[in-house]
Design a protein around this nucleic acid. Structure first.
Lengths: 195, 195
DNA sequence: GTCTATATTACGATAGAC
DNA sequence: GTCTATCGTAATATAGAC
C-alpha cells in the first residue's frame, strides 16, 4: 500500500479532538506538539489544519465543549426545591459527571492559563456560572434554615474543590466503586453545611 | 574577596529560583523558556547553567524545597493528642502555609506531570507523606469516637483538596481576611467529620 | 560568573501536488 | 483531505573569550 488518501473528515475531525484531549491532559497544552497529535491520529501535521485554524482554538474548543456539556447536563437534572435533596442531587451529579471525564476536567481546570485573554474570559464565565448554581442552592438552604453556612460563596468554592478532587484519587485507586465514593462525599458535604 | 565585577553567585542563585518559580506558576513549566527566566533575572540564558544543570532539575528543586518546608513546618507544630484540636491545628496550619505560598503550591500540584519518572516518584512520596499525616489524625479521631468518617483515606484526600482550593479563590478575592477564611473552612471541616 | 556565539533540534503554520 | 516539503522562528544546552 502506497499511502492512505481520500476523504475522512467525518472520522478524522473527532479523532483530532480526542487525541488532543488525551495528550493535553497527560502532558499539558504547551508540552504537546501538533506533530504529536497528528501522529496519534495517524496523519501528517499539516492535515490537522483542516480541522482547526490553530492550536489555541483546538484547546479552546475542547474546554468550551466540556463546559457547555456540563451546564446542559446539569440543566437536565430534575430540580428539587428542598435544600438537602437539591444539594444531594448536585453532589452526586458533579461526582459522576467529573469521574466520567477525567481528561476534560483536568484540562478545564489546569489549562486556563494557556488560554489567550478573550478565550479565557469566555471559559471562566462558564465555569463561574456552574459554581453559581451551587452557591444558589446553598443560599436558598440558608434562607430556609436548613443550612448553616456563614459565606455561601466561599462554601460553594470549597465544596467544588473538594468534589473535583476525586479525579486525583479515583484514577489512582480503584479500591472503591463510584456509588461508594458518591456516598462518602455526600456524607461529608451534608454534614459540612447542615444547620 | 577576589571577586570579579560580574560575580553575583550569592544573589543570582536565589534570583534564578525566584524567577523560575514565578514564571512556572504563571505560565506553566513547558511554556516558559530559559531565556525568559534569564531576562527576568537580568542575565543571559547561558549564565543560568551556573545554577542548575538543566531546566528539569530547576523545576524539581523548586518542588522538593517546597514540600520539604511543608513537612518541616508541620513537624514544628505543637502536636495535640486530642482529635479536634489536632484537626483544627492542621486545618489552620494548612490554610496559612498555602495561602502564603500561592506560586509554590500551584507548581507542586500542577507540574507533577512535567517531572521525569524518577523525580516524580520522589515528589509524590513527599506529597503522600503529608496527606498521611491528616489521615492519621482522622483515623485516631475515629478510634476515639470523636469523628465519624467512613474512609479516612478518602476523607483526607477530600479535605486537602478542599483546603488547597483556597488558592484559587483567595487570590481572586481580597474580600475576606486570612483569619476569616480559616474560620469558615475550619467550621466546614469540623462539621464534616464530627460524630 | 557572565558574556557572545553557536550547534542542534524542534516548533507552528503554510504551499502546492495529487 | 492528505501528502511532502519548507519557511521562519525559537527552543535547550554548550564552548570559549574575558
Amino acid at each position: 500500500m502506497a499511502r492512505t488518501q481520500g476523504s475522512h473528515s467525518d472520522i478524522t475531525g473527532p479523532k483530532v479532538r480526542q487525541a488532543a484531549l488525551r495528550l493535553f491532559a497527560r502532558h499539558g497544552y504547551a508540552a504537546v506538539s501538533m506533530r504529536q497529535i497528528a501522529a496519534e491520529v495517524g496523519v501528517q501535521a499539516g492535515a490537522l489544519y483542516n480541522y482547526t485554524p490553530d492550536k489555541q482554538t483546538l484547546l479552546f474548543d475542547l474546554m468550551k465543549t466540556h463546559l457547555d456539556e456540563l451546564l446542559a447536563a446539569h440543566d437536565a437534572l430534575p430540580g428539587g426545591a428542598m435544600p438537602f435533596p437539591a444539594l444531594e442531587a448536585f453532589t452526586r451529579f458533579h461526582i459522576r459527571f467529573h469521574a466520567e471525564r477525567p481528561d476534560e476536567v483536568f484540562i478545564a481546570y489546569m489549562e486556563l492559563r494557556s488560554l489567550e485573554a478573550g478565550n479565557f474570559a469566555r471559559i471562566e464565565a462558564l465555569r463561574r456560572a456552574y459554581e453559581q448554581r451551587l452557591e444558589d442552592i446553598l443560599r436558598h438552604g440558608v434562607e430556609q434554615g436548613a443550612f448553616a453556612v456563614a459565606d455561601p460563596r466561599i462554601a460553594a468554592m470549597a465544596l467544588i474543590a473538594m468534589l473535583t478532587g476525586i479525579n486525583t484519587g479515583f484514577r489512582r485507586g480503584g479500591r472503591l466503586s463510584l456509588p461508594q465514593v458518591q456516598e462518602l462525599y455526600w456524607e461529608m458535604v451534608r454534614k459540612s453545611v447542615a444547620a
